[in-house]
């Protein structure tokens, strides 16, 4: 089952590798990882997507929580939450029709064109992982995807639940 594990940790060297160690030692795959400092720069917030059953998820969260640099761990998947991912995608278009098609889909998906050159559009799109994949599939139909980069999912619980220090 797909899990979103959210971690609040010290923004310190080595902290991330210790967390990744918990996964790699046990042979768990990390599907995506999104990490950046929080509004308090001394802390980092991490969102990890992995596939795991309940027992494995419990072990992962406990083992991550046990790390000295980690303040809080929560599994977001089970309760109400919001999640977003951002993708930058560069597509090559040869014909006017293709260009029009790309622009139409950009509107439908509420994406944004960030950069235009004679042959390429660079597009920003935000949403759930599924939406990004759908957008990418649609793009592939009318244009050639030159490259793309995704941030990995980041998520928060709804309402007053929060990871606080």
């Amino acid at each position: 089952m797909r899990r979103i594990i959210s971690v609040l940790m010290e923004n310190a060297p080595g902290a991330l590798s210790r967390i990744m160690g918990v996964f790699s030692q046990r042979g768990y795959n990390v599907d995506s990882l999104c990490v950046a400092p929080t509004s308090d720069e001394s802390l980092s917030r991490l969102t990890i997507i992995t596939q795991a059953d309940n027992k494995v998820t419990e072990q992962i969260t406990k083992q991550v929580n046990k790390l000295i640099d980690v303040l809080r761990v929560a599994e977001l998947t089970d309760s109400a939450h919001v999640e977003r991912e951002l993708m930058l995608i560069k597509v090559a278009t040869r014909t006017e029709i293709a260009r029009a098609e790309v622009k139409r889909n950009v509107d439908i998906f509420r994406a944004r064109i960030l950069d235009v050159t004679s042959q390429h559009y660079t597009i920003e799109v935000t949403g759930t992982s599924d939406k990004l994949t759908a957008f990418s599939d649609v793009m592939a139909q009318s244009a050639e995807i030159t490259e793309s980069a995704r941030t990995g999912v980041c998520g928060l619980s709804r309402g007053d639940r929060a990871l606080r220090p």
Binding site: S17, Q25, D69
Partner: peptide
């Protein structure tokens, strides 16, 4: 050393 010992320490400092 911090890397080599990572999975077998409670914590480490460089």
């Amino acid at each position: 050393m911090v890397g080599c010992s990572r999975p077998i320490v409670k914590h480490s400092f460089l």
